[in-house]
Design a protein around this nucleic acid. Structure first.
Length: 272
DNA sequence: TACAATGTTTTAAG
DNA sequence: CCTTAAAACATTGT
């Protein structure tokens, strides 16, 4: 479910528990979401510790408990963070529940593509601090982006936008929204973008990320009707810019929506 | 029933 | 070693 701004929204859901001790930890030890992590150590470490801080980078979150305990959380397709009552009874998909005096911090994920990892260290784990720059960071540069596109020259631009090592936080709906705004066909080869297309892509990446964080990140409201977002899953949906029909097709392994009247493939082999 | 879902990770081929 | 495409993961809803 979640991309950049949705992850930010869910991160905030646990804010009521900040600066409060965790009284007890409830988890399903063999749940897939804990793959590769020591659940006994996690439970022992967090019991009695204070929830100090949380931050997000792309779709990843890191939370600090006490002085040397960290939880890395990724939400996968269906993960959520919720704040429930102190005696909230965990449901089937509630893999982790941290009980506090005033409420329960709940991580749920029916599909279990999400991931919860426990780290013990004085400082923030390298796996988090070493992540590539976010879209809105000054270190995310046009030249760096174009270099990455050249390294993925034959892949459809849609597939390249989903690569977290260059575009942290971008997911399926954001990629479609950005390409639609930039008037680039999602199947166009990443290495064939003109400098002008690159400039538009770079601009729209930043604008969509900024707007999404400022709106969805706070209250999960849907983007406005003037965006592609509200129209992209509707059968018979129409492009808010051209009024023409929208098309859906699998590109880069994901269902992709675009406006053929606006997003055209460059002519490669004009008929003789 | 069959298929698709706002996501990674692994596997295999070129 | 690098890029690219497809399958796999597990569950729910249409």
């Amino acid at each position: 479910m979640p991309e950049l701004a949705e992850v930010e929204f869910f991160r905030r859901q646990w804010n009521p528990g900040l600066n409060q001790p965790v009284r007890s930890v409830h988890l399903h030890p063999h749940s897939r979401v804990f793959r590769g992590t020591d659940t006994e150590a996690l439970a022992a470490a967090l019991t009695g510790s204070i929830f100090q801080h949380s931050q997000r980078h792309g779709k990843q979150m890191i939370l600090r408990f006490g002085s040397r305990h960290w939880l890395g959380i990724r939400l996968g397709m269906t993960g959520k963070l919720r704040y429930e009552t102190p005696d909230y009874p965990p449901g089937k998909a509630d893999h982790l529940v941290l009980r506090q005096k005033n409420g329960s911090l709940v991580f749920s994920d029916p599909r279990q593509f999400g991931h919860v990892t426990y780290y013990s260290s004085e400082t923030i784990p390298d796996t988090f601090s070493q992540l590539p720059p976010e879209i809105l960071d000054d270190r995310f540069t046009f030249d760096g982006m174009m270099h990455f596109l050249k390294r993925r020259a034959r892949s459809p631009i849609k597939a390249v936008l989903l690569m977290q090592e260059q575009f942290p936080g971008i997911g399926n709906w954001m990629a479609d929204e950005i390409l639609w705004r930039a008037a680039i066909h999602p199947a166009q080869a990443a290495g064939s973008l003109t400098p002008a297309q690159g400039k538009r892509l770079f601009k729209e990446l930043r604008e969509v990320a900024r707007f999404a964080l400022d709106t969805i990140g706070h209250n999960y409201e849907d983007p406005p009707e003037s965006w592609l977002f509200p129209h992209r899953w509707k059968n018979g949906g129409r492009c808010p810019k051209t009024g023409g029909p929208l098309v859906r097709e699998t590109i880069g392994g994901r269902t992709t929506c675009w406006s053929p009247g606006r997003q055209k493939l460059p002519n490669q082999d004009p008929p003789r």
